[in-house]
């Protein structure tokens, strides 16, 4: 992982992922460390994403590194028509690592090819967002004590949701059983179902919450965006079908945790926030530890409290 860019979740092997999760736990135990004192990290957000940006910048700051960058490209030379290549090549000469979010798909991969310093993809359009996937894996590992043999429910927009696609790919290494709950219009694309078939992973599709959710270890909720429906009436009719409420959760397993990449709109009712099974705010907090681990791994540094 040292000096290697993280563009796609497939850049990391199962062993790499295990190492990130191990280090994330150490950073959770001791979040403030001085290991990045001589590092400057570029935080290049060509499109705004406040949550992801602050999570990364908190991770760098807690490790005593420094951050330079921008939170949207409006005030930069990018808005004056500078090519992505020139922007990345220049900033790579100032800094030790580049975190970037960009609306174009494949932009992080391209940046990693032309940059002299490692690039961490913080989202390239609808394509990849690997640090989100790693923090999801850390959240699953932390709450279940393992990644293997879990019953994972993916709910909401399974067609366009990149987080569920990346999570599906990553979890496929750990013999899961998947259940997909979605409107047929937002069902899991065939290419992912073919992928699961090729790996002999069981999956089941449902159109609403049924008794079956009593088997769930993890329920991963996603936003259902109005724009995905050409017919607004259809959206209004279906949106409430996928809203999670406390009464739905009554008979679910005690180890069940509800995850959501945030921000949510209305797919999880506010009353669920106080439920012991709600985990999405802790999940966001885990993002800082996971990003600390990713930065440390790429810089080839160990957490101070690492006895290995």
């Amino acid at each position: 992982m040292k000096n290697k860019s993280l563009v796609s979740i497939t850049d990391y092997s199962k062993e790499n992922i295990a190492e990130i999760l191990r280090m994330a736990k150490l950073f959770e135990e001791k979040p403030n460390q001085r290991i990045l004192e001589d590092k400057v990290v570029a935080s290049l957000f060509f499109e705004p994403s406040t949550r992801t940006r602050l999570s990364f910048e908190s991770a760098v700051n807690r490790l005593s590194g420094r951050v330079v960058g921008f939170s949207e490209s409006g005030s930069t030379s990018v808005s004056k028509g500078e090519s992505l290549k020139d922007t990345i090549k220049t900033i790579a000469t100032y800094t030790d690592l580049i975190v970037m979010r960009h609306p174009l798909e494949g932009s992080a991969k391209y940046a990693s090819e032309i940059s002299d310093v490692p690039v961490v993809n913080a989202g390239d359009g609808a394509n990849q967002h690997p640090t989100q996937t790693l923090l999801d894996l850390y959240s699953i590992y932390k709450t279940q004590g393992k990644l293997d043999n879990l019953n994972i429910f993916l709910v909401g927009d399974l067609k366009y949701g990149r987080t569920v696609h990346s999570l599906l790919m990553a979890m496929s290494n750990y013999n899961p059983t998947f259940h997909f709950i979605s409107h047929p219009r937002l069902a899991m694309p065939d290419e992912y179902k073919m992928f699961l078939n090729s790996k002999n992973i069981k999956f089941f599709e449902h159109e609403d919450f049924t008794e079956i959710i009593n088997q769930a270890d993890i329920m991963y909720m996603t936003r259902v965006q109005k724009e995905r429906f050409s017919d607004p009436i259809e959206y209004e009719k279906t949106k409430d079908t996928y809203v999670l409420k406390n009464d739905i959760l009554v008979n679910t397993k005690t180890n069940l945790k509800i995850l959501h990449p945030l921000p949510r709109v209305n797919e999880i009712s506010d009353e669920v926030d106080d439920n012991k099974k709600a985990y999405y705010f802790e999940q966001a907090k885990n993002g800082v530890y996971t990003r600390q681990a990713i930065l440390a791994a790429i810089f080839g540094l160990k957490p101070e409290n690492d006895i290995n």
């Binding site: 090519s83 992505l84 798909e105 391209y110 390239d124």
Partner: peptide
């Protein structure tokens, strides 16, 4: 929305299915 359609980049694909000639973009 692929970066290769916006920047001056040589495209690169892996051959996903040679028979039906479908190509998978290395970038997006």
């Amino acid at each position: 929305k692929c970066v290769t359609n916006h920047e001056n980049i040589q495209t690169k694909f892996t051959v996903f299915d040679a028979e039906n000639l479908s190509l998978k973009c290395e970038y997006c």
